[in-house]
Amino acid sequence: MRKATFSGRFDNLAEISEFVVGAAKEAGLNSSAVYAVELAVDEACTNIIEHAYGGEGKGDIQCCCDISKDSLTITLRDRGRPFDPNKVPVPKSKANLKNLKSGGAGLYLMRKMMDEVRFEFTKESGNILTLVKCKVSKSCVPD
């Protein structure tokens, strides 16, 4: 299992990406699946910094990558505010450009890019986000 802790800063997103991309390649995922993992984790960490911590430099993000025979499991932990995915609006598709408002795309993407997305929160452990990408996966992004 690969494990690393990063300060919750946007400047660290590239390093976090490098870390998970390394694990995704080691897991033997194809290039579109590697990109899907990179994008999902970037969106997740951006949400942690913006919403759970409410800004940069307010806490850490712990990232664990676990490779099994069939899948790659990424676990992201933070100590920010509890995150309730049900409160995030689903982005409107085909909305008029003028009416398009930012927000919600990150979570939507995570769900589309990964095979499993699980959110947990406990007072003891904080937020735990589990992202699973199967080696034989629905491919969302072209090769």
Partner: peptide
């Protein structure tokens, strides 16, 4: 990049 475009289309942003 086709991967970027694929993700852009997935959330419906490519159409803009």
């Amino acid at each position: 990049d086709p991967k970027i475009r694929g993700a852009l289309d997935l959330v419906g942003m490519g159409s803009y």
